[in-house]
Amino acid sequence: MKSFFTLLYKDLLCEFRTKHAIYSLLVFVLTTVLVLLFSILDKDFSVELISSLFWIVSFFSTMTGLSRSFVLEEEKHTIMFLRLQSSVTNIYLSKLFYTIIGSLIINISITIAFSLFLSGFIIYNYTLFALTILIGSIALSSAATILSAIISRAEFKGLLFPLLSFPIMLPILITSVQLTNITLTNFTFENELNYLQFQLSYSTVLITSSLMFVKYIFEE
């Protein structure tokens, strides 16, 4: 348990020093908002467009900034060190929590940026929106962490990463966009709890199976 917190602290400290994820997030948010504002000056953006963009920005920031956690360890050849210090499960858990924290921060900053710059971004249902962001972050991170562990051992990382993560993350993104649509329109066509239920069980399944099998990835 102690080593888990040490590892988590180490990851957060590394991120704080390099600010890799923070910069990539800033660039993504700024470009999307600016391109949107300059290209469609006075038009009202449709809710569907805004919520899709929200999750596209979130997806790419998570992908570039955070999900390199395991890949970086492998590239810096520090994974062996970590494995001497702690069990694979502990390393996995610390990476998972690091990714969840990072992705939560990313989503909250996107929310702030969108509500400052895009007039169409008005949240009607705050509880549902908070839940969407929380569960969406957990689900995205649970997929990103295990895939990052798998990728770290393979060659052609740059090509494989999007290819592997895209189909596994897309169901999460689809349901998140639907949920965000609901929070932004204040009118429910659908049973919004279904989507939350889907995301919750999807992330539970991903995390459980990762915990079960992550140790085999680093077995030689």
Partner: peptide, 25 residues
């Protein structure tokens, strides 16, 4: 894309399980 035989089998099995379970969804 994985050269080492044993880790290739292990990693592809882990990926296959993750992929198979999520494909149920």
């Amino acid at each position: 894309s994985i050269k080492n035989e044993i880790s290739k089998n292990n990693i592809s099995a882990v990926y296959n399980i993750i992929a198979g379970i999520s494909s149920i969804f």
